[in-house]
Design a protein around this nucleic acid. Sequence first.
DNA 1: CGTTAAGCACACAGATCGGTGTACATAATA
DNA 2: TATTATGTACACCGATCTGTGTGCTTAACG
Lengths: 203, 203
Amino acid sequence: MTELEKGPTGRRRGRGARERILSASQQLFREQGINRTGMDQLCAAAQVSKRTAYEHFTGKDELVAEYLRRFDPSVLSGVFDRTDLTPRERLLAAFDIPPTTPLCPYIGAAVELHDPQHPASQYARDYKKAVAARLADTAREAGAADPEQLGEQLALLIDGAAARTRVLNADAFPTAAAIATVLIDAAIPATTGDDRRGEEVSS
Amino acid sequence: MTELEKGPTGRRRGRGARERILSASQQLFREQGINRTGMDQLCAAAQVSKRTAYEHFTGKDELVAEYLRRFDPSVLSGVFDRTDLTPRERLLAAFDIPPTTPLCPYIGAAVELHDPQHPASQYARDYKKAVAARLADTAREAGAADPEQLGEQLALLIDGAAARTRVLNADAFPTAAAIATVLIDAAIPATTGDDRRGEEVSS
DNA sequence: CGTTAAGCACACAGATCGGTGTACATAATA
DNA sequence: TATTATGTACACCGATCTGTGTGCTTAACG
């Protein structure tokens, strides 16, 4: 009965409360981590009373899961839909991440929450599988011999770059991209049309 | 003035206190994570009074750093010293991790502590660099064209496998080993003696 | 107007956190 | 035996955590 988006006309005073909470989560959870960000601080940053926050979310766990769901990172959304690139270029573009990204939040959540059954951990798993699947699709499009394997390999490279960037405090994505080039070149026969752009593969 | 290891003969009643604390750390920090393991629980598991723990360590931070330092994982110690393997086999052996390992604790510490200046984070960085250097040495021994690059690449694969194993809750090291095989084959000229075992390279 | 949804301010509960203070016990040494 | 190092038992501190309870305000609608 929250009736948040319905109604004939617009009413509801500050209907952006939920959005402000999630927006503050994006910033604080990423900057400070999940465990080190208290609900008090988060509500203050969102300019929302704590009472209101707990009327929108049953608890911090649910909020964390929603925060992860709201996060659509560059990888999934931007890269795969670019029909101006060849499939091979799209596979490599997944490693061109903006330097603003401090760490893959899915890995962060899985490590911080430390419970594979946590809703956020489950979503992180689903998301990572989805990325691997998308990579496999693109690999198939690019004519790779074993698309599933290449997708899984590239996904591992992305995660490795993210983890290593975090630990070493230095950008590891160029290294990952170099490996990706080797793998892609090895997996895709040279005869296969590399410069086809955005065309569908028949089967 | 602790005089823990000195003295003409052995005295000191329960001189295993420090060891018990660190031993309990190994178990609990890995099972539950660092942040979710309180000092109360840790001291109880170590059968050590909290007072004693804080006479051995100035605080939890120092304990965490020591815990990381004590952790010598299979990778560094076991693999590189095996003269029964060719250099190439040693590089691949780094991906044969026992399934008992839940997650690389260095990545875990870096994510959980979330402060690159934390002593444990610094050590994690040093350790990861050392592993990459050892891999590079072995790659040089194996006759790789660009040993430093190959070492960094293999290190990234290991971290990727660790991170992905954690997030997906499924062993990702076979995938990493497959990539490693490709990289090693590509980087090491086939003419180079692959079956030399444990010999030194002149330069 | 009155009703109702939405939110705020703020105190507070209960737990846990890292860390200390104090008084006492034990064992090896001198 | 006396001393000293080492450790225990346990209460306790202040801070912080997630989460509630309560009463008040504001705004949209009828």
